[in-house]
Structures are given as C-alpha cells and as structure tokens.
C-alpha cells in the first residue's frame, strides 16, 4: 500500500465515530465576523493606512501624480543610491527624474546581481489600511518576488484610493491566488530577541511608501 493510501485510510478510520455531515461548506462555518472594522470615509481609510504603515516603521510620503517622479528622485538621492532596480511595466514617468543608474530586472540577473543594487521601485496590487500592509502580486511594475527582497531599500508606490481596501477580507477578495503573493507590513523585523520587535533583518531595512492621490476624494474637501 502506498503511504498516500495508508494515510487517507487512517484518516477515514479515525473519523469512523462521527455521523455523516452532508452540509455544504458554505453552511458549515458561521461567518458572523466583520468585513471591516469601523466606518470610515475613503479619506479616513487612506489616512489609517498611512498611520499603520508608519506605526511599523515604514516611511510614508503623500503626493499627487505629477509629483511622483520628483519625489522618487529625491528619495533615491537622499539615500545616495547609485543603482535602482526597475521592474518591467513600471510607469516610465515614475522614474523619469532618477539620476541613479536604472537596472531593468531581467531573468538572467542572479541573486548576487540583485545584492549589488542599492534600491528598487515598484507598484503594488493592493494596500490594506487596518493592518498597514501592501501586497505585491508580480503584476506589471512589481517584478519578481526577489527584487523587493534583496536590495536594502524599497520604494513602493500605492495609487490612492483605488488600490486601498480597509481590511484583510477585502484584500483577499481582490487577489488572485494563482499569482505569487507577498504581503509586506513595514520593513523586515524580528521579535526573536526577548520577544521585542526590532526592525531590520534580511529584507529591505528601509521601506518607503508613496501614497499617490490620483483623484481628490470627497472627504479631502470637507
């Protein structure tokens, strides 16, 4: 007998004491928890995202669409970045003013190549306000998972409010499980020394998030 059959047989045997449970899964679980916590305007949701990102030591900047190029260039030069990784599909105007050498991400670049890059600029798939999380799904402008991991400095551009959701349940609804997903909440950190959080281990130690206002929201004028 294969181990597969052995294990499945043991499972069935182990459950023999239980009566049949024909209820479909949709009815098996009582989902009385909330889809999001609290009521907020769109503007308040974006503000909560900014607060929670900052609470976990991401550096948050807010700007308008035309200001992205200047802001990105300023952040890179403030850091003294000489090379910056640019994934395919990144809107060209985001890196238009960059003076650092732009390195396109390519399949032939090794992990050692990535390790020599100072910074990386990407977009994201969705951002979660309640948890201060950005999620990358490898779509246009986001690149392979490794490019936002090996360099020590990550600039992530979030289009607000279009890419912002309130909660984890709402984020999962927007995401495609078939894509490789990375959820990022602040720079890399550890709680392994005396159970206290310290930022900065293997991932980028500096995470800068640009919240780009793409359309004025009603609450901004209130």
């Amino acid at each position: 007998m294969s181990s597969r059959d052995l294990i499945l047989g043991r499972v069935r045997h182990a459950l023999a004491d239980l009566a049949d449970d024909p209820a479909p899964y949709a009815q098996a679980v009582e989902r009385s928890y909330l889809r999001e916590h609290g009521e907020r305007t769109v503007g308040q949701t974006v503000a909560l995202l900014a607060d929670n990102l900052a609470d976990y030591r991401a550096v948050v900047h807010r700007c308008t669409g035309p200001e992205v190029a200047g802001t990105v260039a300023r952040l890179l030069s403030a850091r003294g970045a000489r090379t910056v990784l640019v994934p395919a599909g990144l809107p060209p105007d985001w890196s238009a003013d960059v003076t650092a050498v732009r390195v396109p991400d390519s399949l032939s670049s090794t992990a050692y190549d990535l390790d020599r890059a100072d910074s990386v600029i990407t977009g994201c798939a969705v951002a979660v306000a309640e948890t201060g999380t950005i999620v990358l799904d490898g779509g246009p402008g986001q690149g392979r998972r490794r490019i936002t991991l090996v360099p020590d400095h990550h600039i992530c551009v979030v289009r607000v409010p279009a890419q912002v959701v309130s909660s984890v349940p709402q984020a999962l609804e927007r995401l495609d499980p078939a894509r490789p997903l990375t959820w990022i909440s602040g720079p890399s950190a550890t709680s392994d020394i005396e159970l206290d959080r310290v930022e900065g281990v293997h991932g980028p130690r500096t995470l800068e998030v640009l919240l780009v206002d793409e359309q004025p929201t009603p609450s901004d004028h209130s």
Binding site: V128, R179, P180, S185, P187, R197
Partner: peptide
C-alpha cells in the same frame, strides 16, 4: 502585531 512583516503565498511554481 496587526500583521507580521512578511507573508508569502505561492501556488505551485511560477
């Protein structure tokens, strides 16, 4: 934490 710094999700190979 509200969310841990990194969560990876993968489905087979890409």
């Amino acid at each position: 934490e509200r969310m841990n710094p990194y969560t990876s999700m993968w489905t087979g190979t890409t």
